[in-house]
Amino acid sequence: MIKKLLLLGFFFSCAVTGTANAEGKALVLDGSTTVGPVAKSFATYFTKKYGVRVMVSESGSGNGAKSLINGSCTIAAMSRAMKDAEIAAARKKGVNPVAHVVALDGLAMVVHPGNPVRSLSKAQISSIYRGAITNWKEVGGVNSRIVVIQRESNSGTQESFKELVIGKGVQMTGNAETQSSNGSVKSRVSTTLSAIGFLGLGFVDSSVRVIAVNGVLPSVKTVKDGTYPVSRPLYFYTNGQPAGAVKQFIDLSKTVEGKGMISELGFVNR
């Protein structure tokens, strides 16, 4: 029986090594879940076209910056600009982060489709997230407690939201539920009647209702011309000016194919 086991193990290792194929150096991307869909689609396309392996991990903008500084990724995908502290740390390690704007993104405020509230002002949203407003009744909705949904603290989306809506240095309510990604915010909001959350525009679909901020709904047009008040650029960061495969990868966002992917994913081309 032991022989059988060994045989099994042998076959197994054969099967595994059979698929082994090492080819060139892989690109490693790390960072924001918001930029994740763009990064993943680019990666698939890039691997197909140039035969270069691309690994994408989505662990948050902060983590992307850290990985770039540590030299553990070639491109950091970030949904916010690098902070001064991060740049200083990078310089100290001999890394020179260079920003490339890939696309623009509107931060959509979303509620459950059953929620009759259609529009909120920036001040109202801010009060909800500070915990000053806790019931939908106070903003013209039904009598129900607001389930506030925010993002993990390492999220660039979270930081952009704070900066754009609430203001720096103001504390959010501790009652806010934390989700680790845009996708999970969407699924929480779509299954929770009294929830409110914020998403990258690219993640919005019919399972949630987008509400207008200051009377403006986010769309390609309003994000591009800046009338929608909550939008931001998405970045790829590289160490120094990119060259070779890295440059090809980053320049995808300027090609027709890349632009097509970006707009199909719901983001806005620059």
């Binding site: 698929t19 082994a20 194929n21 993943k40 990666a43 698939t44 991990s57």
Partner: peptide, 10 residues
Amino acid sequence: VSVGSAIGLA
């Protein structure tokens, strides 16, 4: 990592 192709033994 979340997306990547199968890797070889090497």
